[in-house]
Design a protein around this nucleic acid. Structure first.
Length: 260
DNA sequence: ATTGTGGCCTGCCCGC
DNA sequence: TGCGGGCAGGCCACAA
């Protein structure tokens, strides 16, 4: 699903939509527009304008117009971004690669004949005007050791739940969390504030490396743990049968031997 | 404030 | 072969 690595790929793709005049807005699914936004308002804001920057905070894609307005794009679990018919990522775990126009929730057409589309079969994403960027925590790609220590704090919440708390650390979803903790050798259920200084450094180093690695591979579902995240799966590192639990409200797979 | 839970959305997969 | 139930998880509302 779109976590930080996918949305970063979408952001790169969105750069090819910069400096092109929007001539038409098609938003047939009003549910997909959030915060009271209507199709006519979206059209009034965007038609005649061009985007000048494509930014990303966590899983939120931000498109700034030459008018000073910012469009926020969320992709939920199954949303894809297409520019001129090219997708930002090849495939998406739990979604579909079918070419189904009915799944295009928002389409922006440019004066040169191309377009930018959000295709989301399950409608879990959304588009918002002027998103509250300060509601998101520090981006997981650039978080510092000190920043990580602060956001984990002295919390007794499960480590994994804290890492997925978008208001504290932006960009980490279920698959990225499982992969990072697998690589760091840390039990997802550990109290977030209970890490030793050495474990904290290891988590920070591993998080940063895992984010870069999955951006490079092209998706959060391309981690070392992914193939084993299923019933009967064994740890790729030591062969121990993986344990499946619900932590932070999400299905969690971990190795009971080397994740402590 | 913090933490946990349930519901929303719907394509897909499995078993009958 | 068709059908129904369960599953996936990002996000938000809500409760304790």
């Amino acid at each position: 699903m779109p976590e930080l690595p996918e949305v970063e790929a979408y952001r790169c793709l969105a750069e090819s939509a910069l400096h092109r005049r929007v001539v038409e807005v098609d938003a047939p699914d009003e549910w997909f527009l959030k915060g009271g936004l209507t199709p006519s308002h979206l059209g009034a804001v965007l038609v005649g304008r061009a985007f000048v920057a494509a930014r990303r905070i966590g899983k939120l894609l931000l498109l700034d117009t030459d008018d000073g307005v910012t469009l926020g794009l969320r992709f939920g679990m199954t949303g894809r971004l297409l520019v001129d018919g090219t997708a930002g990522v090849d495939e998406l775990e739990y979604s579909s690669v079918r070419d189904e126009p009915a799944w295009d929730r928002v389409t922006l057409r440019f004066g040169d004949g191309g377009d930018l589309r959000i295709r989301d079969p399950r409608r879990l994403g959304g588009v918002v005007l002027a998103p509250e960027e300060n509601r998101l925590g520090v981006d997981a790609r650039t978080v510092t050791l000190g920043g990580l220590a602060t956001l984990l704090g002295a919390s007794g919440a499960p480590l994994k739940a804290r890492l997925m708390d978008q208001a504290r650390l932006a960009g980490v979803g279920n698959l990225l969390a499982d992969e990072t903790l697998f690589r760091a050798g840390l039990d997802p259920a550990r109290p977030a504030g209970g890490l030793s200084p050495a474990e904290l450094r290891r988590l920070h180093r591993t998080l940063r490396a895992t984010v870069e690695s999955l951006i490079e591979r092209g998706g959060s579902h391309l981690g070392d743990l992914q193939a084993a995240r299923r019933p009967g799966g064994s740890c790729p590192r030591d062969g121990t049968p993986l344990v499946r639990r619900t932590i932070g409200g999400r299905t969690t797979w971990s190795c009971p031997r080397h994740q402590r």
